[in-house]
């Protein structure tokens, strides 16, 4: 009696896109899937994709939740730069005098190099959260403030210079391998696990979607909607902080002016490609993960195929538009109509 077809899960489209890219490489790119072991580390294009996408992955995970509350956080690129700069500064023992003199520096303990930037990032996230939830600013505007000022602050910390360093312990964060796997990717997996735990083992996941879907109804149901929004932005700051540590450690330096520039846009893109609507109310964490992988494997494919890297952006633009149009209501209406017509014609 009930003829309603089960709708395709929303992850199908992004997965298909990823599959297509991988299939393309399977056929046309020699050795794309080969993984070798050198010095106990895994090497290969796939491993490279996993390593490179880690910082974006970590930020996109948090962005998924932010967008699900019908918000947006465009300050994470700047928070990333601040986190990295603080870390670099701590490696140098907290001062930049070494830049002029060859003075001895006493690096801070690794614990502080890791923890202080993360705390700073969370405080910045809390500022965003406060602006959105309590002051009631539009999320875009609220986070625009830190996006603009934050980069300046990062440059202030580093004295406007690129802070290079060498620190065996800290370098492991971005460059190390654990069990042959790139450490950044392990961090990304841990962040995903943490996010999944927080949203599954507490009612947070439910609340985030409830608040994004209908704030009034959530309030009527007793949810502390402000707290939910506040916490989500703190988590976003935290994740940007981790990404900052990875990038800084990987390049053994903090380039406050350019680190993480436009990365917020990549994160948002990954979320949207992954099937989370910008209007909020429902998130798709798996989709986001696939979205990040799509963007990175696209980039890596272009690089390994010897296509000039300048085409990356063009391809990205086309892919984004295609995904957007496929997911649009007009397209689904169109498909519905034509299939209805076809089935009608078939029945007749």
């Amino acid at each position: 009696m009930d003829k309603t077809k089960k709708p395709l899960p929303s992850i199908v489209w992004p997965l298909a896109a990823l599959g297509l890219i991988l299939l393309f490489n399977l056929i046309f790119t020699d050795g794309f899937f080969s993984i070798t072991i050198k010095n106990g580390h895994l090497f290969g294009s796939l491993i490279d994709i996993l390593k490179r996408c880690s910082p974006t992955m970590i930020m996109a995970v948090a962005m998924t939740y932010v967008i699900a509350t019908s918000g947006i956080d465009i300050s994470i690129g700047s928070i990333l730069a601040i986190s990295g700069s603080v870390a670099a500064l701590l490696v140098w023992g907290g001062n930049t005098s070494y830049l002029s003199a060859g003075a001895d520096v006493q690096p801070a303990a690794l614990f502080f190099i890791i923890v202080v930037p993360l705390l700073v990032s969370m405080v910045l996230g809390a500022f965003n959260g406060l602006m959105v939830s309590v002051v009631g600013l539009q999320p875009f505007i609220a986070t625009l403030i830190l996006m603009v000022a934050g980069r300046g602050m990062a440059q202030l910390l580093t004295g406007g210079k690129v802070l290079n360093f060498s620190h065996k312990g800290f370098e492991f964060v971005g460059r190390g391998y654990l069990l042959g796997i790139p450490f950044p990717f392990i961090i990304a997996v841990l962040v995903i696990a943490l996010a999944a735990l927080l949203t599954k083992l507490t009612p947070m996941g439910l609340y985030i979607q409830a608040v994004g879907g209908n704030k009034t109804a959530s309030h009527y149901s007793g949810i502390n909607t402000r707290m939910v929004i506040f916490l989500v932005y703190i988590f976003s700051g935290f994740c940007a902080g981790i990404a900052g540590l990875i990038l800084t450690s990987d390049i053994t330096g903090a380039d406050a002016g350019f680190m993480g520039l436009y990365m917020e846009l990549d994160a948002i893109l990954a979320v949207v490609i992954g099937g989370t609507a910008m209007s909020g109310g429902k998130y798709n964490l798996k989709g986001t993960i696939v979205g990040v992988l799509i963007i990175q494997s696209l980039t890596t494919t272009i690089l390994t195929r010897g296509v000039p890297p300048e085409y990356t952006l063009l391809v990205k633009a086309v892919v984004v538009l295609a995904v957007l149009i496929i997911q649009s209501k007009r397209t689904s209406d169109f498909i519905e109509k034509t299939t209805a017509k076809v089935s009608k014609a078939g029945a007749a």
């Binding site: 846009l265 949207v272 952006l313 063009l314 957007l324």
Partner: peptide, 24 residues
């Protein structure tokens, strides 16, 4: 307008397109 798509994402891909075109 036609796809009722979010301006944020559409103009972001516009950004990619224009920048990419410049690089080319």
């Amino acid at each position: 307008h036609y796809f009722d798509a979010p301006a944020f994402i559409v103009t972001l891909s516009g950004q990619f397109f224009a920048r990419g075109f410049g690089y080319i």
